[in-house]
């Protein structure tokens, strides 16, 4: 019996753009993964709790509001606190409208990769599969 890769697809902050998140959610499902979709307007604190309770291997945050610079690092902080470990054993991906020049700071904060408009979902799925941070239970 093989375990399933579990992914939290989250929409942090006051951002109503949900097409990208839904495209990503479907792509992961079609790749055989279990996707927990959070719905719109979640705080980083809520997302961190959800990621822990659902024991996901991947957190996929979609942000088109411009608030990635504060929301994503806060998510990472909250997740570490919830988990009670300094080490980040979850793959953190971000996508949406995120300017090139903001990417280094996000990566320094713990984001593993950032994907912008037009990225093929196959690329995203393949990247996800090959960069998991821990063995699936």
């Amino acid at each position: 019996m093989s375990g399933k890769i579990r992914v939290l697809v989250g929409k942090p902050g006051l951002d109503g753009h949900d097409r990208g998140a839904k495209v990503i959610a479907r792509a992961y499902r079609d790749a055989g993964m279990e996707v927990i979709y959070t719905g719109l307007h979640r705080t980083p604190e809520e997302l961190a709790r959800m990621a822990v309770e659902e024991d996901v291997d991947v957190v996929a945050l979609s942000i088109l509001s411009g608030a990635h610079g504060t929301l994503i690092p806060r998510f990472v902080d909250c997740f570490r606190k919830e988990k009670g470990t300094a080490q980040l054993d979850v793959l953190v991906l971000a996508g949406g409208i995120i300017p090139e020049e903001d990417i280094p700071a996000l990566k320094a904060a713990g984001v593993d990769e950032v994907f912008g408009p037009g990225t093929s979902t196959q690329v995203i799925v393949d990247f996800t599969r090959s960069h998991l941070k821990r063995p699936v239970a």
Binding site: K4, D30, A31, E34, V35, Y37
Partner: peptide, 16 residues
């Protein structure tokens, strides 16, 4: 439900 074709699933109850 899981998809019978891919084994994947979208679990959306948290939205509510």
């Amino acid at each position: 439900p899981s998809s019978p074709f891919t084994g994947g699933a979208i679990l959306g109850d948290r939205v509510r």
